[in-house]
Design a protein around this nucleic acid. Structure first.
Lengths: 194, 194
DNA sequence: TGATTTTCGTGACAAATGTCCTCGTTGCGC
DNA sequence: GCGCAACGAGGACATTTGTCACGAAAATCA
């Protein structure tokens, strides 16, 4: 099945759209394949696109002054990804996006996105709804990060994202949670013994 | 000066609005005074309003199973506050909003907000711009929480929110940062000795 | 003003986490 | 299939953080 066809099925479960509207959305999109370990956004580049992951798994992360990776989030199938700060301000991104698996994505430029949003209010409402959901997810993650122990964070991650958990190495889960690999290993040992 | 007059000055620095549009915004708003320590949103209530802090200082926090407070954010003058999850879903809030200082706020119901947004697209764009900024702030806070030490988090808070820092007790800063009061006290000692 | 609460620091000890290291296994690329 | 890199576990030790207890100073309120 073509990439856009998969996207169309996803979209039609969420929004009512006419064929003409779908054509507009299709005509402004571009396809791209991303190899495993290939970069999709490098540090310093501008994140000027909305990207929908059709197949595979991407991640958004940042490298600190000491060279350590810190994973902000994973984006498997049916998720959207961008560095929203760079997207919004037009400034170079401090973050990196690469593929953890061979992936295929659909891409809209910021300009095309705005144009399509203007033409199709229901599509704009859909996009904004997604954004609110992301905001709420971040809100809950912050609460989790200031109120939970490492073990609780780990359990919560496995419970919330079982699919992602099964597809990424543990040291990346540790990075996402903000603990070292060793700590995660200890938490897991403690956990499986009980 | 009247509450709305203060708000009008704030708003006109950000958006171009006609007198008629300002009248619509004014006519849908309600004023409220909140005493120090008074609750503005209790756990279990629905957060169905947009609230602008004209004077004073509010906070949004949650109490965990062990009875510990975890502060999500502070809202001083010229900030907006609500529990966006409850606002969006209509579900009872798990969070609490109360006043740390004697405060005065302007309030719009969700319904009125949507109506005014529909009537004044520039006002909608303004509101959505604020929301994107909040999202970016949360994004950066998450990065900070998974990549920084307690000392770095503390320094960063003081630098980013010097005004708030000077108005709230240290144990609330600790709560916001996700560490105990004792740890914050140690960090400060270590910090001032150098 | 006087009494009470809140705030903040500190010491002692326990628990959690980070750091550095080794080792065996797995999986991927050539 | 082979070789190498990636992955995950685990031990030993240092550091950080949490917990509990106490006391002094500051703020609050009647």
């Amino acid at each position: 099945m073509q990439l856009f066809e998969i996207f169309r099925k996803y979209l039609q479960e969420k929004v009512e759209l006419t064929d003409a509207q779908l054509d507009l959305i299709r005509s402004t999109s571009k396809e791209r394949k991303i190899a495993k370990r290939e970069f999709y956004l490098r540090e310093g580049e501008i994140s000027g696109h909305n990207t929908f992951v059709v197949k595979g798994l991407l991640r958004l992360y940042r490298i600190d002054e000491d060279g350590n990776e810190h994973i902000m989030r994973f984006a498997p199938e049916n998720w959207w990804i961008s560095d929203r700060e760079s997207y919004n301000t037009g400034e170079p991104s401090k973050f990196i996006i690469d593929a953890l698996e061979k992936s295929e994505v659909l891409i809209w430029t910021k300009e095309d996105s705005e144009f399509v949003y203007g033409e199709i209010p229901a599509f704009r409402a859909f996009g904004e709804g997604l954004f609110v959901e992301s905001f709420i997810a971040y809100h809950n993650r912050i609460y989790n990060s200031i109120s939970s122990t490492a073990e609780e964070k780990y359990k919560n991650f496995v419970k919330t994202y079982p699919d992602i958990f099964n597809r990424v190495p543990l040291h990346m889960v540790a990075s996402y949670l903000g603990v070292t690999r060793e700590t995660l290993s200890r938490v897991r040992r403690h956990f499986t013994l009980k």
